[in-house]
Nucleic acid binder design. Structure first.
Lengths: 236, 236
DNA sequence: GGTCACTGGTAATCACGATTTTCACAAAAT
DNA sequence: ATTTTGTGAAAATCGTGATTACCAGTGACC
């Protein structure tokens, strides 16, 4: 069964083909678009026969899922590694690091955010589930760092779950915008904005306005004017 | 040519069919998913023949684009209307209003955020362009309000463009999460988080940390590990 | 009441792309 | 040197769903 061919073990050849298919998939999905990419095109670009394709993947979506996972895993690995190095640093430095490494990793290649935040959206329930899992992981990560900051007294002690989710969304939005722009936006600005937003979101006081809490949920759409807002002291 | 049927003018009948097709599209796209919805299914649910379908729309995507536009337009109309009512209010109240109305409008029906932020993503270049246009509009809106706040002295005077984009992303993320959750997250919490994040992002000082500016773009990814790197080389 | 215009529904048609199968070959093994 | 086995390329199959063409019915107008 297993027989060395052309000097390389069959597993190796297999792995190579798989790798080439993934590379081809990344390229085509992010240029032609996932929907409009045909399996045969992926095979052609990868120099792999359709038969071999089905040896490695069950479908086009399978390739997409794999890529999506890989990109997220790569980013997470980088972030984790870097965070370990600054284990003793103060909380805010850690948060900045987390962010910088994330942005740096994912902007190395515009195809990564494109695949992650555009092509892999709304494709199938499975992919949506996978997305959820990753949002969760990233949100946990951020929430954990925020709590750490709270312990150190530089942020209020509160539940950071939703804030973290919103921050993940903010990053997604920025990166989606970044990869879509033709004269690409400067990466530094994206990173700076993301960092500033995260820090201000985490360090913000529990009540931003004193009216906070009276409004909130309800704010009916019809309800007319509500100017006035008497007696509010402005936060600094 | 034009003849009244069943007591209604042909244009009316036409408009009705169109409307039913849109309703059916909204329902199916957000349950079955856009990709897996067949034109015939939309027609069946709308009680419209395929022939009539092609009389109104050129493709399934056409329906999606129309819905995407409608939802955004609806939200924008509500927001604009409400904002007009509080024209004289202080800047922060206006911002809160903007947000509350937006959230209230779009959470009336979970299918709206689902369609807008999941199903309509990565479908085609046209739809991506349309998405860009709307992000732009919303971002301008937010940036304008932020500038207003700056004029009133409750926020620093600076360029709010990227902040606004990030905020749009935050909202998108929150709403995407909201519509995905089975025991749905309480709308008030989503709204509260969004508002708090927006206010803290707008009111934040220009430099959050003193180290700000030394870090930023660079944050090297540590030349060491880059195993997975799913992006080999550029296309020909 | 009869004819005509327009309608909705159904039944072909048609194209495209995924999946399978075949084929001829190349490199190992004996 | 011959057989064997894994291989890649190409061709055949197969299904699905978009698009078009047809048919029978209904209400409107004379």
């Amino acid at each position: 069964m297993a027989r060395t061919y052309g000097g390389v073990a069959p597993e190796q050849r297999r792995a190579d083909r798989r790798q080439r298919l993934l590379v081809a998939g990344l390229e085509l999905f992010t240029s032609t678009g996932f929907r409009h990419t045909k399996i045969t095109e992926v095979c052609a670009r990868a120099g792999v026969s359709t038969r071999n394709f089905y040896e490695e993947f069950t479908s086009k979506e399978d390739v997409l899922r794999t890529l999506h996972d890989q990109i997220n895993s790569l980013a997470l690995a980088h972030v984790t590694a870097e965070l370990d190095k600054v284990a003793d640093a103060d909380a805010l430095t850690r948060i900045s690091t987390l962010l910088d490494v994330f942005i740096a990793t994912v902007t190395v290649d515009p195809r990564m955010p494109r695949l992650n935040y555009v092509e892999a959206v709304g494709v199938s329930p499975e992919l949506e589930a996978q997305h959820q899992v990753w949002v969760d992981r990233w949100a946990n990560f951020i929430a954990a760092e925020a709590s750490r900051a709270a312990e150190h007294g530089v942020a209020p002690v509160r539940d950071y779950r939703l804030t973290a989710i919103a921050l993940v969304g903010a990053g997604t939005g920025l990166l989606r915008e970044w990869q879509a722009h033709d004269p690409p936006l400067p990466v530094e600005e994206i990173g700076a904005e993301f960092r500033a937003m995260m820090l201000s979101a985490i360090m913000r006081p529990e009540k931003i306005l004193d009216i906070e809490g009276n409004r909130g949920a309800s704010a009916r759409v019809e309800e007319s004017s509500r100017e006035g807002d008497p007696g509010g002291h402005r936060p600094t």
